[in-house]
Design a binder for these strands. Structure first.
Lengths: 161, 161
DNA sequence: GATTTTACGTCAGCCTTGTTGACTTTCCAA
DNA sequence: TTGGAAAGTCAACAAGGCTGACGTAAAATC
């Protein structure tokens, strides 16, 4: 397309890029498949998984916080959150300082499901990491970070702390 | 969880795995964001993008072939394919050898949209690859392949040829 | 030649999860 | 103290998954 722009960029052919794109597509399917099976049994979907994950990650986080990370509308998140609260997986406490806010926590039951989902997803990730080796893992992370939207990358890196 | 199983596996802590999982989630959002914007303008969704991509990839492929790669039901794929044919982006030709089959091709119009979508997605992938460097790219690919379902990996590797 | 299997299309209906729009409650600042 | 902004909720719609049932034509098998 733009020819060879010199340097050691020979690996950036259309073909290499297309393979990268397809790899991303297929790998993501594998990535979600194990949790999906578990969620199915419980009558939940991926949206519930994401909520459980990030509430577990940052207990006491607010709905607004979660919205920024998940990148969906508050109405969409609210539906999911409502079922999780009704089913006793999530506890939603009115803020003490600001009563408009709701602080979210996992209940014991919620923690249990989150753990099951995380275990399944981590098992696949662990197997992939082991098979690929430490250097590949570092490269994997590097490319993924470079692919994120800048604002999201910021969230991602803050979550590291 | 399982303690230290020796070797050079120190990098496989729960924390490292969780970061890998989150990186995958956030990066996939970036990965789809540019095509999504283009699709929106044309009134299409990701399902249409996937169909266009793989028909472009393997011109003349059959519906059944596509089903295996996309991993959806024929009813689901058919809905998408029908609109693409109606809108003149895809040409569906009855097989000559086996008249039960339909062979799928992009029209000039379909090729045009596919090109726009691919350009946008490749631009981000190219930028990420450049920023991360060749070794990181190799690692990225290695981990992604290790994360795919075996049967899908088979498809992926066949597509390489 | 009759039967079964395969490839594809379609109708109907359901579910999840995204969207926008309209609405409360609460807080804060003019 | 009042008016606007912010946090969250409710309602309704659309995209795109899914299952199940059915039809047709062509191919394969018996």
């Amino acid at each position: 397309m733009d020819g060879h722009s010199g340097e050691k960029l020979l690996f950036l052919t259309d073909d290499q890029l297309r393979k990268g794109i397809e790899a991303m597509f297929f790998a993501y399917r594998g990535f979600t498949s194990d949790p999906d099976r578990i969620l199915d049994k419980h009558g939940y979907g991926r949206a519930h998984h994401r909520a459980l994950h990030f509430i577990n990650r940052s207990p006491g986080t607010t709905v607004n916080n979660l919205l920024a990370i998940l990148g969906v509308t508050k109405q969409s998140l609210n539906r999911v959150l409502r079922t999780l609260v009704e089913d006793g997986l999530v506890d939603s406490r009115v803020g003490t300082r600001d009563k408009r806010e709701r602080h979210l926590f996992l209940t014991a039951k919620g923690s249990g499901l989150e753990r099951k989902l995380a275990d399944a997803q981590q098992a696949r990730m662990r197997a992939a990491f082991r098979a690929a080796g430490p250097e590949a893992v570092a490269g994997f992370r590097k490319v993924l970070e470079a692919m994120m939207e800048p604002e999201i990358l910021h969230h991602f890196q803050r979550l590291k702390e």
